[in-house]
Write a protein that binds this DNA or RNA. Structure first.
Length: 607
DNA sequence: AGTATTATGACCTTGGTT
DNA sequence: AACCAAGGTCATAATACT
C-alpha cells in the first residue's frame, strides 16, 4: 500500500519533492518562524486576549497561503475570527486564480494539485492515475461535444424539474455504468452522500478488483466499452457538478461541507459486513510521522471542514463506537494510517447492554427497547432524577401508561440510566464505564482521584477498541516498538490501545494538563511493566520546536502523533460555551497542528 | 478547600408533512 | 421549499455538603 513508510525509504517523501507550498513552508520555518514562535511562547501568558495568533499565522502559511496574504487577512479580520480569516484567504486565492475556470475550484488548492499530477506520480497517486488516464481512457476530450448533445435530455431534465436528488442521480448513473445497484448504494453510504463520482467509482472499482482476486467470487468480465462511456459521462458530470456548486454557493464558499456517513462506520468496522475500501490520501499527508486526530463527530457546522483543511485536507473517518461496544460514541478521526488489513482487539467486547451488564437483565422492562447505551459523558444522572422516575412508576401495578413510559425512556436515554431493581434505574458506575470504553478495570480508580473526576476523565476519553482497530495496522509496521507523541492524552487511551494490540511502546511523550490524568497514566505504565520511556509534559506550550527537535534528536523521531484536542467547546452537551473552534479549549487544536507541522519539518530536514 | 449534587438549553441532523 | 417535531450530545456553573 502506498502510505507504508518505513525508515529505509525515506528519500521520496513529498516534502522534498516539489511544489510551492512546501518550499514556502521550508523557507518560513528556517526563517521567521523562529522569531514568531519564540515571540508566541514568550508572550502567550501576557497577551491572553487572542491566544495563538502567531500559531494561526504560521499555519495559514503552512496551509499554503502566502505570508503577505495571511498577514493581510489577519489584520483585516482580527486574530480571533478564524472563519473570517479563512474566508478572506479563500477569497484572495479565488481572485488571484482565474475565476472562469470551473474545474480549478474543485479542490481548495486545485492549481497545486494539477501540478502534482503532472509532475509527480509517486506514492498515493497510483489509483488516481489509473482512474484519470488509464481506466476511462482515450477519447476523453474529443467526445465531449456529441456527448453533451446526446445527453442533453438528461441534463435538461435535471436542471428543470430537479426532482432527482443528487444521490439518486449518482446511483442511476453508476448503475447505468453496469455496477449493481446494491453495491452502488453501499458505496454511496460508505463514501457519504456528498462524495464525488470519482470517489464512488474508485470505491466500486476497488471492490471489484478485490473480489476479482477472491477465489470464491467470479467477477463478470470487464467491459472496456463501458469505461470509455464512463469517461464521457464523467467529464460531463464533473462539469455539471461544478456549475451547480458555483451556482449554489458562490465562488468563495468552500467545497461541499463534510457530511456524516450513514451508517457511521468509517472505512469499516469488524462487526459489520462491508466492501473492501481503498483511499487516496492527499499528497501532503503522505509523509512520516503517522498522525491520528480525534474529536466529536457532531461538532458545530463547518468545524470539521476547518479541521480537515488544517490537516492536509484528509477527510475524516467518522465512526460510532456502538459498532465496537455497548455504548454509542460518535467521533471523527483524521489520520494518514493505512486502512487495509485492520483487525480488532480480542476478545470482542460485549455489544449490547444485556451482555455488558447482565445484572440489569432481570429488571429490564420489555417496554424499554434499548440495546445500546448512548454516549458516555462526563456527568451522570442525579439521584433526584432516579427518585422521580421511581415514584412515577410506583403508581402503577403493571405497565405504566404511555406518557409515563415516554417520560422514563426519555430520561433514561438522556442520562444513560440502566435498570437495577423494580422501578429502579441508576446511572452507570465508574468501573462499568471503564469496561465499556475498553480500559482495564480500576484503571481510573484510587490514587487520589475523586469519583466525579473519574467520570470526567472517562467521559473525555477514547473508546479503546475503536481506536485500537484503526491503529492495528501499525503492528506489522513497527514490530520492534513504536515511538509515540501523545497530545492531550488524558487517561492514556491511545497508549492502552497500542499496548493491548501488542505493539511495544518504545518511547512515549505524553502531554496532559490534568495531574489526576497524568497520575493515572503513570500508574498504568508502571503496573503494566512497560519497558520503554514515558516522558510527561504538563502544558502543550512547553513543547516548543526547540524541545521537539531535542526530543527527536535524542530518540530518532516519532512514528505516531496521536491525540484528540479538547471538545468541550464543540460538544452538544455544553449549554454554556459551545463556541466552536474559536472557543478557549478548542484553540488547542492549533497546538496539535503546530506540533504536527513542526515534527514533520524537523524530521523532514533530518532525512 | 475539595467534593458531590443539581439544574441549566442550544444546536444540529433526520424524517416527516404541508 | 418551508416547516415542524423529535432525538441526541467527550458540559458548565451555582449550590450544598463534607
Amino acid at each position: 500500500m502506498t502510505g507504508n513508510i518505513t525508515d529505509n525509504e525515506s528519500e521520496n517523501f513529498s516534502w522534498s519533492s516539489d511544489d510551492d507550498v512546501e518550499k514556502e513552508k521550508e523557507v518560513f520555518d528556517t526563517g521567521s518562524s523562529l522569531t514568531t514562535l519564540s515571540a508566541f511562547n514568550g508572550t502567550a501568558e501576557g497577551s491572553s486576549s487572542s491566544g495563538p495568533s502567531s500559531t494561526l499565522f504560521r499555519h495559514f502559511v503552512g496551509a499554503g497561503f502566502s505570508e503577505s496574504l495571511v498577514a493581510k487577512a489577519i489584520e483585516e479580520n482580527g486574530e480571533g475570527n478564524m472563519d473570517s480569516i479563512l474566508n478572506a484567504l479563500l477569497t484572495y486565492s479565488a481572485l488571484e486564480s482565474s475565476p472562469s475556470d470551473a474545474l480549478d475550484i474543485e479542490k481548495s488548492s486545485a492549481t497545486e494539485q494539477n501540478g502534482d499530477l503532472s509532475k509527480t506520480n509517486n506514492g498515493h497517486s497510483d489509483q488516481k492515475i489509473d482512474a484519470d488516464s488509464d481506466f476511462w481512457s482515450s477519447d476523453y476530450d474529443e467526445n465531449i461535444p456529441d456527448d453533451l448533445s446526446d445527453s442533453d435530455s438528461c441534463l435538461g431534465m435535471e436542471e428543470t424539474c430537479g426532482s432527482l436528488s443528487e444521490k439518486d442521480q449518482k446511483l442511476l448513473f453508476l448503475a447505468d455504468m453496469g455496477y449493481p445497484v446494491e453495491e452502488v448504494k453501499i458505496a454511496i453510504e460508505r463514501c457519504g452522500p456528498e462524495s464525488s463520482l470519482e470517489e464512488l467509482a474508485d470505491f466500486l472499482c476497488a471492490a471489484q478488483m478485490a473480489r476479482a482476486s477472491d477465489a470464491t467470487y467470479v467477477d463478470p468480465p470487464a467491459k472496456p466499452k463501458l469505461y470509455s462511456d464512463y469517461a464521457k459521462h464523467k467529464k460531463r458530470k464533473l462539469l455539471e457538478y461544478e456549475m451547480r456548486k458555483k451556482k449554489q454557493k458562490g465562488l468563495f464558499e468552500d467545497d461541499e461541507p463534510i457530511r456524516l456517513p450513514k451508517p457511521m462506520i468509517g472505512f469499516g468496522v469488524p462487526t459489520e459486513p462491508c466492501l473492501p475500501f481503498r483511499r487516496t490520501l492527499p499528497e501532503a499527508a503522505i509523509a512520516p510521522p503517522y498522525f491520528y486526530y480525534e474529536n466529536v463527530a457532531l461538532a458545530p457546522k463547518g468545524v470539521w471542514d476547518t479541521i480537515s483543511r488544517f490537516l492536509y485536507d484528509v477527510q475524516p473517518e467518522f465512526v460510532d463506537s456502538k459498532y465496537f461496544c455497548a455504548a454509542a460514541r460518535k467521533r471523527g478521526y483524521i489520520h494518514n494510517l493505512p486502512v487495509e488489513n485492520r483487525f480488532p482487539l480480542l476478545p470482542l467486547p460485549p455489544r449490547t447492554i444485556n451482555e455488558a451488564l447482565p445484572l440489569t437483565r432481570k429488571w429490564w422492562p420489555d417496554w424499554d427497547p434499548r440495546t445500546k447505551l448512548n454516549c458516555l459523558q462526563t456527568a451522570i444522572g442525579s439521584a433526584k432524577l432516579t427518585e422521580r422516575i421511581r415514584k412515577a412508576l410506583e403508581d402503577y401495578e403493571g405497565d405504566p401508561p404511555d406518557h409515563v413510559k415516554k417520560y422514563v425512556l426519555d430520561e433514561c436515554r438522556k442520562w444513560n440510566l440502566v435498570w437495577v431493581g423494580r422501578n429502579k434505574v441508576a446511572p452507570l458506575e465508574p468501573d462499568e464505564v471503564e469496561m465499556l470504553l475498553g480500559f482495564p478495570r480500576n484503571h481510573t480508580r484510587g490514587g487520589g482521584i475523586s469519583r466525579t473526576d473519574r467520570f470526567k476523565s472517562l467521559g473525555n476519553s477514547f473508546q479503546v477498541d475503536t481506536v485500537a482497530y484503526h491503529l492495528s495496522v501499525l503492528k506489522d509496521l513497527f514490530p520492534g516498538g513504536i515511538k509515540v507523541l501523545s497530545l492531550f492524552s488524558g487517561i492514556g487511551g491511545a497508549e492502552v490501545a497500542l499496548h493491548r494490540l501488542g505493539i511495544p511502546l518504545k518511547f512515549v511523550v505524553s502531554v496532559e494538563l490534568a495531574e489526576v490524568n497524568r497520575n493515572i497514566q503513570r500508574s498504568w505504565w508502571e503496573q503494566t511493566n512497560q519497558k520503554g520511556i514515558l516522558i510527561d509534559i504538563v502544558d502543550v506550550q512547553q513543547l516548543t520546536s526547540d524541545r521537539l527537535e531535542q526530543l527527536i534528536n535524542k530518540f530518532g523521531g516519532f512514528d505516531l502523533i496521536i491525540g484528540g484536542s479538547p471538545c468541550n467547546n464543540l460538544a452538544g452537551s455544553n449549554r454554556v460555551s459551545r463556541d466552536g473552534l474559536e472557543g478557549k479549549e478548542s484553540s488547542l487544536f492549533f497546538e496539535y497542528i503546530r506540533i504536527l507541522d513542526s515534527v514533520k519539518c524537523i524530521m523532514g530536514k533530518k532525512r
